[in-house]
Design a protein around this nucleic acid. Structure first.
Lengths: 211, 211
DNA sequence: CCCTTCCGGTGAAATATTTCACAATTACTC
DNA sequence: GAGTAATTGTGAAATATTTCACCGGAAGGG
């Protein structure tokens, strides 16, 4: 196994940002980049970038910087982005639709293998190419047959815990929860909450500070 | 002015969570709550909650705990949630629709005063009660006349910086950016990025760790 | 009214994160 | 090929955050 240190949450978020920068640089045909330059794009001090990358066991060259594609690979590897992981989305409302149509899945190495909803009017719609919305009743069987590891919850808050229970019963290893409630799940399930309200309230706080 | 310390970002996120808990307790008719109980709901140690609340200048009573409505008021006040702030949304795709229909605005004290898009097929749609989607060309005038302080960017990445420039020119004080690019803006503008990819990649990382 | 128990306030210790400082290494120039 | 400038790697210092320890006040019970 590699000599990766456990990355702090803050460091993980920054590394994701560096990866965006690196992918842009790759498109531009750049082969090398310095920590100072990444810092420029990311709005961070170069030393912070070096320290973050240090934890990954990087191999930069003085005077030249980092090899763009090596570094991107290193980050993608640290995040396990190159392994294809199957996921399902529960709740095909507006947020579900926005997510279903997003490029984030392929970027992060996920395959959106199924979409579920409860509403009969929505069941049967084409959520994305070759994926139609299925009834929530089919969730157990589909998660098994498609070997789905991750469930995304985009149902109303009132149905979130219930949905989480179904997902856990069916055997997912992780849950990405957009409902604005804390959901409880067994210790061994990775739960990542992404309540949209957080960002807005943080914004409000920072505006007040800036006054 | 109050004696508020500057809250750390992590503390801000936690306080938002406590507020959710408090609002639930209020609905349930509870008048008091202990730090241990909030900790139970939030999945955190009681002392952390006390320390967070300490920064707000709380007034809990030994043996009884905190007054639920006092505490909620204190948090809402710290985040300036009770002042009504006008906002506009740019980009009425699926994500824009999901946000427009969300309850987060009223919760955080925002009024979604206008919605803009570039697509003629979308302009004129009713985004929410009494708010129709306007052409992006009207953005300057509307931001002025509606005294909009905050712009939300839900356009594709390629149009994000452009949109941000328009918003800044028209005089907004803050931007909530959902496009997966870093946007640059003058120092005095509060920019909060919320790329959805972050959550997914973090999930991927945590799944790998848990293996 | 006094004793006990529970629980918030709060400084201090422990831990984690960020920033600094600088040696080591490489490329470039002459 | 030697000198110089640039840039990484990395331990250490500085700073921030979390956790601990315990004081003191309030409620409840006799």
């Amino acid at each position: 196994m590699s000599n990766l240190k456990k990355l702090s949450r803050a460091s993980v978020v920054r590394l994701e940002l560096y990866l965006e920068v690196l992918e842009q640089l790759q498109k531009d045909g750049r082969t090398h980049v310095t920590s100072a330059e990444i810092g420029e794009y990311a709005g961070l001090a170069p030393v912070k970038i070096r320290q973050d990358l240090f934890g990954l066991g990087t191999d930069g060259k003085p005077r030249v910087g980092y090899d763009v594609s090596d570094l991107a690979r290193l980050i993608r590897n640290a995040f396990d982005m190159d392994r294809t992981k199957s996921a399902c989305l529960v709740g095909f409302g507006n947020l579900g639709r926005a997510l279903a149509g997003s490029i984030i899945w392929s970027k992060a190495g996920f395959r959106l293998a199924a979409v579920f909803d409860r509403d009969p009017d929505v069941i049967g719609l084409e959520a994305l190419d070759n994926v139609r919305v299925k009834s929530i009743n089919e969730i157990f069987g589909v998660i098994k047959s498609e070997e789905i590891e991750t469930g995304i919850i985009t149902v109303p808050a009132s149905a979130a815990q219930d949905t989480a229970n179904h997902l856990v019963n069916a055997g997912v290893r992780s849950i990405w929860n957009f409902a604005p409630v804390k959901i409880s799940a067994p210790e061994n399930i990775v739960v990542e909450n992404q309540s949209l309200a957080w960002g807005l309230i943080t914004l409000s706080y920072r505006m007040k500070l800036a006054t």
